[in-house]
C-alpha cells in the first residue's frame, strides 16, 4: 500500500477514535472509574442520528448534532439518577465500573430491540474519490477529518476558555478540594457527562458512516478506544488524542506490513509474503494495550 494511503487511513481512524477516547479519559479522570458503557452510548447515538437522517429526512449534520445533544442529555440523566447517588454513598470504583458494564449490556440490547441486529448504511452519495499524493480519499472521509478537527479545537477552547473547562481542570488537579465544594462540582460532573457522550456520538457516527451501523458496534470499538486512552496516559484528554492517532497508525501500518522478510531470516528460508490476516485486526489494539501495560502503564505522556 502507498505510504500516503496509510497516512490518510490512519488519520481518519485516529480522528474517529480521538473523539471517543476524550470522553472516556475525562470520566476516568474526574470520577475515577472506567466507563464500559461509553462506546455503547456512542453506537446508540449513531442509531439516533441514523433515524433522524434516513427515516425523518433531517439533514445529516443536524441529525448528528441532535443525536449528540440527546445522548448527552441521557448522560446527565443517568448521572442524576444513578451515579450521583452512588457517589454520595461512597460506592467503590469497582462497583461503578461493573454498573457501567451492566448499563452497556442494557443499552446495546435496547438498540438491538429498536433497530434490530441487521446492519445499516448511512445513505451517502456515491462520488468519485479524490486523489491526494496518490492516496484515495472520499469526500465523506474529508468531511470526517474536517469535523473531527473542528470538534477538537472546540474541545480545547471549552477546556481553556469557559467556566466549565476551568472548573473541570481545577477538579482534575485537586480532587480533595473539589469534594469540599460539592454542589459546584456536581454541576460540572453533569456537564462533563454531556460533553463526553456528545463527543462519543460524533465519533461513533463517523465510524458508522465510514463502515456500518449495527448494535454491536459499541462493543467492537471498546478495546481500541480504551487502548487509545491508556496509550495516551489515562485521564489526559490531549493524551487520548495522541493515543488515538498512534493507535490509528499502528493498526494501519501493521496490517499493511509484509512480515515475510523478517521470518525468512534474511533470505534463508522462502516463506513468501506474510501479512497479518485481517481477521486479526481487532487483536492489534489488544497487543498494543498489553505492550503499553508491560512497558509504561502510564502511557506516552504519563509520568512514571
Amino acid at each position: 500500500m502507498e505510504i500516503s494511503q496509510i497516512i490518510v487511513n490512519s488519520l481518519i481512524r485516529g480522528a474517529e477514535l480521538s473523539l471517543l477516547a476524550i470522553g472516556l479519559t475525562m470520566v476516568y479522570d474526574i470520577l475515577g472509574f472506567a466507563n464500559f458503557a461509553h462506546t455503547e452510548f456512542a453506537a446508540f447515538g449513531a442509531f439516533l442520528g441514523f433515524t433522524f437522517n434516513s427515516l425523518l429526512g433531517i439533514n445529516l449534520l443536524l441529525s448528528v448534532v441532535l443525536a449528540a445533544l440527546l445522548t448527552g442529555l441521557i448522560g446527565i440523566l443517568l448521572d442524576l439518577s444513578i451515579f450521583e447517588k452512588l457517589r454520595a454513598r461512597n460506592a467503590k470504583t469497582l462497583t461503578m465500573m461493573i454498573i457501567t458494564m451492566g448499563m452497556g449490556i442494557a443499552i446495546r440490547n435496547i438498540s438491538r430491540l429498536i433497530w434490530t441486529s441487521s446492519t445499516k448504511n448511512f445513505p451517502m452519495p456515491l462520488l468519485q474519490p479524490l486523489k491526494i499524493l496518490g492516496a484515495r480519499i472520499t469526500r465523506v472521509q474529508l468531511g470526517i477529518l474536517f469535523i473531527a478537527a473542528i470538534s477538537m479545537v472546540a474541545f480545547h477552547l471549552l477546556l481553556h476558555h469557559t467556566k466549565f473547562g476551568k472548573a473541570l481542570r481545577a477538579i482534575s488537579d485537586n480532587k480533595e478540594l473539589a469534594r469540599a465544594s460539592a454542589i459546584d462540582s456536581a454541576k460540572m460532573v453533569q456537564w462533563m457527562w454531556f460533553v463526553a457522550y456528545s463527543y462519543a456520538v460524533i465519533g461513533g457516527t463517523m465510524l458508522a458512516i465510514e463502515h456500518l451501523l449495527y448494535p454491536r458496534l459499541g462493543f467492537d470499538i471498546i478495546i481500541p478506544v480504551f487502548c487509545a486512552a491508556i496509550l495516551g496516559g489515562i485521564g489526559n484528554p490531549y493524551g487520548a488524542v495522541l493515543g488515538a492517532l498512534t493507535l490509528g497508525f499502528a493498526e494501519n501500518v501493521i496490517i499493511s506490513l509484509d512480515f515475510g522478510p523478517l521470518f525468512s531470516l534474511g533470505g534463508l528460508f522462502d516463506v513468501g509474503s506474510l501479512q497479518l490476516s485481517t481477521g486479526y485486526k481487532p487483536a492489534i489494539s489488544f497487543m498494543i494495550l498489553i505492550l503499553v501495560l508491560l512497558i509504561k502503564p502510564t502511557g506516552i505522556l504519563g509520568e512514571n
Binding site: T95, I99, G102, M103, I107, N109, R112, L113, S117
Partner: peptide
C-alpha cells in the same frame, strides 16, 4: 428470536445495575 434475546439481555443488564444499587 433475535428481539427476544435482546429483550432478555436488557433484563439481565438492568438486573445487574439494580442489584448493585
Amino acid at each position: 428470536s433475535d428481539l427476544m434475546s435482546a429483550a432478555r439481555m436488557i433484563v439481565i443488564g438492568l438486573l445487574m445495575v439494580s442489584f448493585l444499587i
